[in-house]
Design a protein around this nucleic acid. Structure first.
Lengths: 183, 183
DNA sequence: ACGTTATAATACGATACTGTATCGTATTAG
DNA sequence: CTAATACGATACAGTATCGTATTATAACGT
């Protein structure tokens, strides 16, 4: 099992696909170029993925790398840690230049929409976890649901990264936390 | 001046371009198909726009239709009206399926990034207007800037329309208003 | 050591697209 | 009425893409 050649080829293809996605977006991805630059034959690519779409979806699915959620004992501090980490990723993470392509394609392609939905669940998981823990601790409940809290924290961060293109710094994160937990 | 043939051609091309953009996104737009369906010759299209990109940018630039900002005498109510209207557009407006394409392309194409920046300013204008008016009225200042207020209100709305795909209803708008103006 | 199998290299067909060129016609302005 | 010009139809060159087919080579498992 697990032929080394297969793993090597798959890894090389996925790495180059990822690089090209972040550089050119989904619509700019070319199998010919992936093949040429990765050194993996096009035939081999089509042996492992049935179509261009399948490769795109496979590569994008791997963006969902989630770290362990914090557990400070306070929901507010947990959320602050998560939001600060997200803000940092929005400034530096290379996936942030791929995600708009996914959002765009999801608007029309059902398969990509399904993948985006999974990815989204992945990203939101830590937030749901810390909210659940707070409930288990019988912490004073917020005046909003977990989904609403997530939208009010993450929404403005995404807004600044992709829409207004303003800076996403810790000061802004703290403002969001203070607002959501209404000082 | 203003040959009727020119105006008719331009209008037909822009209309079909808009339709195709909302159906297939920027990368799915084809000049051949715009020509075929609109009934305007491809040569004529290239007579009026120097390139495909120019047509895309011209068509997208026209998304910025801004209505007159409200003037209720209260910043909070003004913002509520604007946010409610935006929420309605996010549910029904056809431009909402084009905008992700713009955001995506802006990530890599400087010309589209410039257009998106203009479009964004257009969209945000009414919010800035009502904030300015509140300042002029010497209304009790918020504990955040205009840009921060905009991000905390619009961010979550955009988040739900394009990322989490949850419902964007008036109840949610009211929650955002209440949170931003910290009841 | 040897059969099996993944692979690289390459060519290929089908298709689609952009942008240009040509040419005859229809419409407009003056 | 007439000259200018916008137009449609059509063809074309050049490029790019996907996905398949072929063939010889290299690596793998047993």
């Amino acid at each position: 099992m697990t032929d080394k050649r297969v793993e090597r080829s798959k890894a090389a293809v996925l790495a180059e696909t990822y690089r090209q996605l972040s550089q050119s977006g989904i619509s700019g991805l070319s199998i010919d170029e992936v093949s040429r630059i990765s050194g993996v034959s096009k035939m081999t690519i089509y042996r492992h993925w049935p179509s261009r779409s399948a490769l795109v979806i496979d590569a994008c699915s791997r963006l969902g790398i989630v770290s362990e959620p914090p557990n400070t004992g306070s929901l507010r501090e947990d959320v602050r840690v998560l939001a600060t980490d997200l803000a940092d990723q929005l400034r530096t993470g290379s996936w942030t230049s791929i995600y708009p392509s996914i959002i765009d394609a999801a608007e029309r392609d059902p398969d990509i929409a399904a993948m985006q939905s999974e990815l989204h669940k992945c990203f939101m998981k830590p937030f749901h976890t810390v909210v659940e823990r707070a409930k288990d601790r019988r912490e004073a409940p917020l005046n909003m649901s977990a989904d609403e809290l997530i939208a009010t924290i993450i929404g403005p961060l995404f807004f600044r990264r992709w829409f207004s293109k303003e800076v996403v710094d810790d000061r802004f994160v703290n403002l969001l936390i203070a607002t959501a937990f209404h000082i």
